[in-house]
Each structure stands twice: as C-alpha cells, then as structure tokens.
C-alpha cells in the first residue's frame, strides 16, 4: 500500500520552467506535417464509469471475452519469452519430459519395479507426465502471473483475468510438442495411437479449465500474500505423488481410493493416458463427476475472489 505513496512522492522534483528543453520556437515546423485527423469520437459513444466498487455480479467476464486480442498478445508473449536466450530454445519442450521419463523409469520402473498396466514403463510414465506437467506449470505460472506483471498493472487498465488465463494457455504449445514426443516414443516401442486420440483435446480442455480456476484463486491471493508462492512448489510436489502419474491407480489400496477420487487430476491424467493408449485404465465416471463439481465450485468462487481482490490490486501490489 505504500508503493502508491512512494509513487506520488517519488515524482521527480523537476525544476520548473523546462530548463532541459532547448527548444527553438520554430522547432515544431521541422516535424513532418501530418494531415489533421478528424476528431475520433466513436458513434456508439462508449461510456466508462469509474466507481469505488462494482457489485459482485459484474465480474468482468464479458470484458474478458471482448479483449481476446489482448489475451492473444499476452499468451504469445509468454510463449515467445519462455525459450528466448536459451541455446536449445523450444528443444527444451522435447528434452525436459524425456529426461524426467528417464529418471522416473530408472527409479520407479527399474529399482522399485512399479507395474504399468502392461505398457512399457517409459511410455506409461511419459503419457501421464505430460498432462501432469501441463497442469503443474499452469498452476505455477498462473499463480505468479499477477505479480510478474505488476509493473503493467500499475500503469494501464485491462481485464486482469487475462493474466492468469494467458499463463495457463501458454502451456498448450509445450503440450503439443510433448504429445508428438510421446507418439514418437510409442512408435519406438511399436505402438501407435488409435481413434481414441480424438478424446485427448477434451481432457486437455478440462485440464486447462481447472488450471485456470485454480490460477484465479492463487494469482489474486499471491498478489496480496506472497506466502502462496512459497507453498505452491511444495504442494505440487506432494500432489504429483497423490496422482496416478508414475503408478497405476490400481496400485492404491482400496481404503485410499477416495483420495484419488477427490483429486481432480486423477481422471484427467488417466483420461489423457487412455486417449493415447487405449490399453490403459479409462477414467471412471464418478471421478469425472467429481471433477465437474469441483470445477464449478472453484471457478465461480475464483471469479468472485479475483474480482474482489482486483479492485484493490494496484494499491496493494
């Protein structure tokens, strides 16, 4: 809250009279003259109202829809910046899941000999891992999105929801690359995808939505309480082991399966894996129903929370 005051006080104590401008009076003439444009008053006469607080049902969702171009630009910037100044560039989207697969295969596939539903373990783990990593990245960069763009938030107005949304969407490019890597790895083990692959976009869309719902909550809270930023990596790490990524759901003792059902990522990881490898266990309907319920709850509460915090964001960030 003090940043604002600093800003006001920090205004340069410029000397009056514009001493720094050596501007000869004929100066303006040296600018290439431009035809004077007619005043630009839009016929619709857009009126924006600025008030202390808008009611909870004015959540800015319609604004978000109208600002698709801004959403595109932010997403594109997130993607573009990600691999700049990296020698391998987008190559990391190929390498990083492969390296993780290598490690997990060695530790869990070979040393711990975890079963993999009859699939080669590397294929099994990679097919789960890419969906999990998409979600984990969505949460990590989504929750950080407001803070990371604080300098823009304090300077110009736009629907702030674009920030968590674009952070989540930016992961889709990596995901697409990852899927290609997975298909190649499957080919190496003599497996090809079948028609079920068409389900993959559905599960991906669901993962995007739930990632956005979480990011709405986390990005806004993280802007006010930096504590969130410390907690997220720890939670994500634990969360991955509570999701059937490196082990099949069937491995979980019957007394603990409720935990998997409660976890919205269970049906998504299972679903994405099943879409690529129909031999794997498909997601059960109960898990999907839970997911739907959790999404609606998270999304609606997230929008209201985000909207509330948005009103004080620039003062407090």
């Amino acid at each position: 809250m003090l940043t604002e005051l600093d800003q006001v006080r920090g205004d340069a104590d410029e000397s009056l009279g514009g001493k720094s401008q050596a501007v000869p009076a004929q100066g303006a003439g040296s600018v290439a003259p431009e035809p004077a444009r007619a005043p630009h008053v839009s016929p619709a006469h857009r009126v924006a109202r600025i008030v202390a607080a808008s009611p909870w049902y004015e959540t800015g969702l319609t604004e978000l829809v109208r600002a698709y171009e801004l959403l595109f630009v932010f997403t594109w910037r997130q993607i573009g910046v990600q691999y700049k100044q990296a020698f391998l560039g987008i190559g990391w989207a190929v390498l990083s899941p492969l390296l993780s697969t290598l490690v997990f295969t060695f530790v869990f596939g070979n040393l711990a000999a975890i079963p993999s539903e009859g699939l080669p373990y590397p294929v099994f783990v990679l097919s789960g891992l890419i969906t999990w990593q998409f979600f984990a990245r969505a949460i990590a960069s989504g929750s950080n999105s407001i803070l990371a763009n604080a300098h823009i938030i304090t300077k110009v107005y736009f629907p702030r929801m674009i920030l968590p949304l674009s952070a989540v969407l930016a992961g889709l490019v990596d995901y697409a690359v990852n899927v290609v890597v997975l298909l190649l790895l499957m080919l190496f083990y003599g497996r090809t995808a079948s028609l079920e692959l068409l389900w993959l976009p559905v599960f991906l869309a669901l993962a995007t939505m739930i990632g956005f719902a979480f990011s709405l909550w986390l990005s806004a809270l993280n802007a006010l309480y930096r504590d969130i930023g410390f907690v997220i990596p720890i939670v994500l790490q634990a969360w991955m082991f509570l999701t059937p990524v490196i082990y099949p759901a069937g491995l979980v003792p019957a007394g603990w399966t409720w935990l998997l059902h409660f976890n919205p990522m269970t049906p998504l990881v299972q679903g994405a894996r099943w879409a690529v490898l129909p031999d794997a266990t498909p997601p059960d309907l109960f898990g999907l129903a839970m997911l739907a319920g959790e999404f609606v709850l998270l999304f609606l509460s997230g929008i209201v929370t985000f909207h509330k915090i948005d009103a004080i964001l620039a003062d407090r960030i």
Binding site: E4, Q7, V8, D11, H40, V41, S42, H45, R46, V47, A48, R49, I50, V51, A52, A53, I153, T154, K155, V156, Y157, A311, I312, A314, D315
Partner: peptide, 23 residues
C-alpha cells in the same frame, strides 16, 4: 498522479465517481 491513475482505471477511488466518454 493519483487522479490520473483513477481516470485510467488503474486504481479505484475510495468514494466518488467518474465518467469517461470515449476511448
């Protein structure tokens, strides 16, 4: 600066209101 920030909708006023006609 506070006035400009309110009019540019970066921060909200504590009370009072403003109307902007046009882009």
């Amino acid at each position: 600066s506070t006035l400009l920030k309110i009019l540019s909708r970066v921060v909200r006023p504590s009370s009072g209101s403003a109307e902007l006609h046009g882009r």
